[in-house]
Write a protein that binds this DNA or RNA. Structure first.
Lengths: 152, 152
DNA sequence: TATTGTTATACTCTATAACTATA
DNA sequence: TATAGTTATAGAGTATAACAATA
């Protein structure tokens, strides 16, 4: 009897990526706990360092966070003086979120710690292989990131 | 003023892997919905094709599923005739889970469909780069998978 | 007393709908 | 009427504790 689907010798790509993803998140969470920030708070600070200031809704959309759940995160960041939330000058419904100097510094500190951990995790991978990995993942990134159509 | 942490030019590895992981899971879930299986059910079938039969607890441990949550999954797989659940011969507390011919066939069908989708997702990556990616991820896999200490 | 499978419960994350204030 | 932000609520997924049967 010949099977319609011969036993696959190859592991699912998802089965290779998922544990890697889990391990990276675990490392990241340890660092974040150290600095009293949540994953979403760190993602928000990182996004704000790239765009410096944006409306709350735009920000949520950019990082693919929920417009209703981002509120509490910004509340905490604001209370810690890491971001400011001010009413839009032209549209008084809008809230403009901007990162502060303290927020900027904290994001850098956390990111440096996270990348240190990532390097440690992959210390057994030769440098040129690691560079190849980054190059491949950067190439794949746009293929797996839903395009932002908000400008259309 | 010199910053303690200069702006990182590099993206976090987690920020590259997470969207990739999400995209792969989304593809996988579409296939699974087609065949009426949940992610955990597919993982269970895949694990059973590698080990053919095992105690419920050992199985849960191997796939890092919850020993209490695996119950409902096995209930459904058993009801569909994809696995059998029989009392252990030596230890009557234990339940031995074994995959059936139908279960084996379904896993192959689903896996083939999933890997087809994965190939489609990465169709723009040249074959040799894709091979390099798999090679790297296979090398990283043992570094990010918690070792099974159950035999100690 | 410890372990296998089971059930019940609580907790986190997420998704969605309803509300307000502006436009 | 539509939109930005907010609040409240319901759901999925997960983690944990308590229980019955067996060791």
């Amino acid at each position: 009897m010949v099977s319609a689907h011969p036993a696959s010798s190859r592991r699912d790509l998802a089965a290779l990526i998922a544990p890697f993803n889990r391990a990276l998140l675990a490392e990241e969470k340890q660092v974040l706990t150290e600095y009293g920030a949540s994953m979403w708070e760190y993602i928000i600070l990182t996004a704000l360092r790239e765009h410096s200031s944006s409306n709350q809704g735009q920000l949520a959309q950019r990082i693919r966070h929920d417009k209703s759940r981002i509120i509490a995160d910004i509340d905490r960041l604001e209370a810690r003086g890491l971001v400011t939330r001010s009413p839009g000058s032209d549209d008084r419904r809008a809230r403009v979120i901007a990162i502060t100097t303290e927020g900027d510094a904290l994001q850098r500190t956390i990111q440096a710690a996270i990348q240190d951990r990532e390097d440690t995790l992959l210390v057994a991978i030769p440098p040129e292989d690691r560079r190849a990995l980054y190059r491949l993942l950067e190439a794949i990134h746009p293929m797996v990131t839903p395009r932002d159509n908000s400008h259309i």
